[in-house]
Each structure stands twice: as C-alpha cells, then as structure tokens.
C-alpha cells in the first residue's frame, strides 16, 4: 500500500525544485527586511499620519492569511497597473510574471512580521545603553549605530530565524498561482500516479531538512554575533 519505489523515484524530482522555494523565501525576506526597517523608523520616530498608516498596515497583514494576501496581490496588481496607465503612467499589465507577484506578496507579509520583531528587539535593548553612549559624547545617530543596533541585532536573530522558517513553510501555497516549487511538484507527481502519501512524505523530508539547515545556520550567526558584536556569552 505504500509504494517505496515511487517515493524514491519521485524524491530527486521534487528536490530539484527546492531552489525555487529557497530563493523565493530569501528574496522576499530581504525585501521584507528593507520595508520593515522603514516601518520601524516611521513607527519609532512617530512620524505623523505615516505612523498610523504603518500601524494599520501591520495589523492588517498580521490579521489575514497569506493565501488571501497572495490573491489580493494577484488580482489587485494588474488592476492597479491598469489604473496607473489611465493616469498616463506607462505600465503594462499583461503578462506579469507570477514569480513577481509571489515575491511582492511574501515581501509585504514578511515586512509586517519582521517590523514587529525588530521593534521588540529594539525595546529589549536597555535605554540606559543609549544614554551612556550619548553621555560619553557620541552623537545620537552614532550612539544608535554603534551601541544600540549591534545589541538589537543579536536580540533579533532567534525571532528572525523563526520568521524565515515560517515564510519557507508559507510558500507551500504558491502553486495556487502556478509556481512550481516543492509542494507543487509533489502535487504534480501525485496526480501522475494517484499516489499521494509517497510524494507528500518526500516533501516532508525536504521541508524538515531545509528548516533544520536554516535553523542551524541562524544559530551559528547568533553565536558569531554574540562574540563579535555584543561580546556577551549567553547562548540561547
């Protein structure tokens, strides 16, 4: 009842598309990180109006399923481009590559989650560290970049690692808009042989390995960061 041969034969085929999952996750996380830093600056500096907009944006993204966000971008982006063209801006809404849509949707998603993590890491840095830096004559921006941010980064890594792993797992739905990654390939293989559990177990092994690998990688980053940047010895 469990077709080992089928499971083993399918494995390399499913594995071959793992880079799609990983690359999509990494690009979306990087763009999300940049957006998140902007959001954090807006919210921590309490810039008028933008501050409230950013808060609503974060709440909305955190309050809705990624699959719904994906479809809002999928259906919304072309309409936005059409509207922009109506305003005289030269855009072409035809043939938008789906990978672009996916990257956008996941970047938005990541930006909201990462911004909250950065904020809590920022608040966990003792304010007296900043005061001490200023009191020895550092300029405020210098105090931030030399004293606060390095400590913030070490505090951030464990959370950031979790968010990145969540994002990898969340990409398992992009086959809905036609991108062939691990889950999509598993589904395709399944439908070829009407054998489901075999390919899903293959996918499980690949996901568990990817998550294990990146979790270890971030742990190493954290150890290095604690040694190099903040010189504290508490390993989590």
């Amino acid at each position: 009842m469990f077709d080992f041969r089928f499971a083993i034969n399918s494995f390399p085929k499913i594995l071959s598309v793992a880079p799609t999952t990983i690359v999509l996750s990494i690009i979306a996380t990087l763009i999300g990180l940049i957006l998140a830093i902007l959001i954090v600056i807006i919210r921590e500096r309490k810039i008028k109006v933008l501050d409230s907009i950013a808060a609503i944006y974060v709440s909305f993204i955190r309050g809705t399923p990624i699959i719904v966000q994906l479809y809002v971008v999928y259906y919304g982006l072309p309409q936005l481009l059409v509207a922009l063209r109506g305003m005289g801006i030269n855009t072409n809404s035809n043939g938008l590559p789906v990978i672009l849509i996916a990257i956008l949707a996941y970047s938005f998603n990541a930006s909201a989650n990462i911004s909250e993590s950065i904020r809590s890491a920022y608040h966990s840095v003792d304010y007296q560290q900043y005061e001490a830096a200023v009191s020895v004559g550092m300029k405020p921006t210098r105090a931030m970049t030399r004293i606060v941010v390095p400590q913030l980064i070490t505090n951030l890594i464990p959370n950031f690692s979790n968010l990145f792993l969540d994002l990898i797992k969340d990409t398992a739905i992009v086959y809905n808009i036609g991108i062939v990654e691990i889950m999509a390939k598993a589904n395709i293989m399944s439908s070829l042989g009407f054998k489901y559990i075999e390919t899903y177990l293959d996918a499980l092994i690949i996901y568990v390995f990817i998550c294990w690998f990146f979790a270890k990688l971030f742990q190493i980053f954290e150890i290095i960061a604690r040694k190099r940047i903040s010189h504290t010895q508490e390993f989590v």
């Binding site: 792993l165 969340d170 398992a172 889950m183 899903y200 177990l201 568990v208 990817i210 294990w212």
Partner: peptide
C-alpha cells in the same frame, strides 16, 4: 518538535487526510 515544526501546515493537512487512513488500516 523537529518534524512537526519543519512541516508546512498545508502539507500537514494533506498528510493527515491521505496518511492517517492508511496508518489506521
């Protein structure tokens, strides 16, 4: 924990749906 947390929820649902009956059988 390693197995469960490394598995996308979507895959977990599929495994429950297709795998559990086989396991019980």
């Amino acid at each position: 924990l390693g197995l469960v947390r490394g598995t996308p929820p979507l895959l977990m649902l599929l495994l429950a749906y297709y795998g559990l009956p086989k396991l019980f059988l």
